[in-house]
Amino acid sequence: MRSYVPAYELRAPQSLEAALELLEREPDVWRPLAGGTDLMVLFEAGKLTHRKFLSIWKLSELKGVEVTPEHVTLGALTTYTQVQAHAVLQREFPLLCQAARETGGIATQNRGTLAGNIVNGSPAADSPPALLVYDAQIELVSARGSRWVPYQGFHTGYKTMVLRPEEIIRRIRLPRTKQGWRQYYRKVGTRKAQAISKVCFAGSAQMQHNTIRDIRMALGSVAPIVLRCARTEAALRSQKVSAGAFAAAKEVLAQEITPIDDMRSTAAYRLRVAQNLLEEFLLQLQNNGGDESHRGLAAAES
């Protein structure tokens, strides 16, 4: 333990209201701490510069999954374990379930939360690519009220986001509009489990015969933020799936992402693999999902 533990404050407000009041009264002084799977790692390494935290881990207002005809709404503290176990999510949002299954081991899945994965702001986070593909919306609450924002655009740069110091994420809402879309998720990590992604790809497309009517694509670990690849999407929208379209899309993708060298991988690898995953996704659209043996296939299709 490389941090001076006695200097760190942690309080556990008994209600969301109490937590928000404290954040309102002393903005920037208090920061929320949920399952601890990211912050406690920094703490161990002596790299947690902030000193005062609010434990929101036991706040029931931030828990639970609600299903309406239009949406599935997940409490901010929904854990990876809970995501995987939810029948509607399994059926309609398999990419999110797969992301949850491939994040850490069971212990991490029990403590890691969706909102935590978002606000940690890591470009290598596993669930944000799926959330982007599903057009997720996020409810931000403060003592003064709440607002819904689209998840796309939430991250404004490396570790920066539209969240204000007095706000926390309350819920994440997934519109149930992707029925019939083909889905693809593949995390390329440093090993098969308990890995941080080197490239992570989530894609979903609405097909009409051989034509891509609509498409969503998001990649992790290839830019300062988890990136919705709008330009590549645009290049593919209304296109027939063909070798020519693949090649053009791969070129656009190369322009759209900005991978770097770090201790886990290289920019060249990330670029090449991102392109290869795009191709694999598109081939799957072309093949009508025929390549059953492939592990990149989402577990289910809606």
């Binding site: 440093t190 090993r191 098969k192 489990a193 941080i196 201790m263």
Partner: peptide, 11 residues
Amino acid sequence: MTNYIMPTAVD
């Protein structure tokens, strides 16, 4: 251990 990778039970 996060960045020096040894095989897990699934590797």
